[in-house]
């Protein structure tokens, strides 16, 4: 068991996602930066899809009720175990009764905390990923208790994996053409690949809005299926990139589609960060 002393700014539990219910409007959800979350699990010898804690901006303080092993990966922040500094990306042991404090994120946007055997919160429709009206809570709250699994300590054989922070440092998003790419004018296509766009104030697990506008458009289309990573062109000419919690259908032109890696890179960006698109096909 684990008790939440402080929940942090916006902290959730996420696994690989909720598959098989998109036909009734249930978003797929799941960790925003799948690369970082899977890497964290690998460092502990967990299954790649085990549930991890996704931490945004300011980290939580957590009191552990059992002996276990944890690791952080993704965005970077200072960690303290009972006041003693611990290193990012290197697994360490926690004894029952100890408190882990994760400070403000300094680089990137989302930090993942993996725990031995994964978080054991409720599984609804095949997934532990938090989502309003599906799981009982949509984010961590003070004094919440999370189930953990007591496991035997494994030798920390994975501890010397080289830290790869390329998703944090790059700003190039590889994209494929979306279903409505062809309704763009030549000038609009040029802007998309030549401009540097900036992440707007509205950016969350559902969507990232970008600051720059490319051109107003009057494309009228029927409601159609969408995917995480779809770049929609809004009527005012803005770009809205759908993320993991996005609704399953939409009525705006789907002009581009981010690759999986590009979604992970964008998940580590915050307001004001610059990004560029690189069209693959």
């Amino acid at each position: 068991m684990l008790r939440v002393i402080h929940p942090g700014f916006y902290t959730t539990i996420q696994d690989a996602g909720r598959f098989g219910y998109r036909d009734i409007g249930v978003p797929v959800s799941g960790y925003m930066d799948a690369f970082a979350a899977r890497f964290a699990n690998a460092l502990l010898g967990n299954q790649p899809e085990d549930a991890v804690m996704e931490i945004s901006l300011k980290g939580p303080t957590l009191m552990f009720g059992i002996n276990t092993r944890v690791v952080t990966y993704g965005a970077e922040a200072h960690l303290k175990l009972d006041g003693e500094i611990r290193a990012h990306c290197i697994p360490f042991q926690i004894k029952a009764g100890q408190s882990l404090e994760i400070d403000t994120i300094e680089k990137g946007a989302r930090l993942y905390l993996a725990v031995q055997a994964g978080f054991q919160t409720e599984k609804i429709l095949g997934s532990r990923s938090f989502y309003p009206e599906i799981t009982h809570t949509d984010k961590l709250y003070k004094n919440q208790e999370l189930m953990l699994k007591e496991t035997e300590f494994l030798p920390s054989g994975h501890a010397h994996v080289k830290h790869d922070d390329s998703t944090l440092t790059t700003n190039l998003l590889e994209v494929l053409k979306g279903p409505e790419y062809d309704c763009l004018t030549t000038e609009m296509c040029k802007k998309i690949t030549e401009l540097t766009f900036h992440v707007g104030h509205e950016n969350n697990r559902m969507a990232y809005k970008l600051e720059e506008k490319i051109s107003e458009n009057k494309v009228d289309m029927l409601t159609s299926p969408t995917l995480p990573g779809t770049v929609q062109l809004t009527p005012s000419g803005g770009l809205m990139i759908l993320m993991r919690d996005a609704q399953t259908t939409g009525g705006y032109p789907r002009i581009l589609q981010l690759t999986d890696t590009a979604i992970n890179i964008l998940a580590q960006k915050r307001e004001g960060d610059g990004i560029r698109f690189s069209l693959l096909n």
């Binding site: 598959f19 098989g20 998109r22 036909d23 029927l222 409601t223 159609s224 299926p225 995917l227 399953t248 259908t249």
Partner: peptide, 15 residues
């Protein structure tokens, strides 16, 4: 795969 249908579209999503 899982599928999402809407008006004139059918989206097939593979794992």
């Amino acid at each position: 795969c899982e599928s999402v249908m809407a008006y004139r579209s059918l989206l097939l999503i593979y794992k």
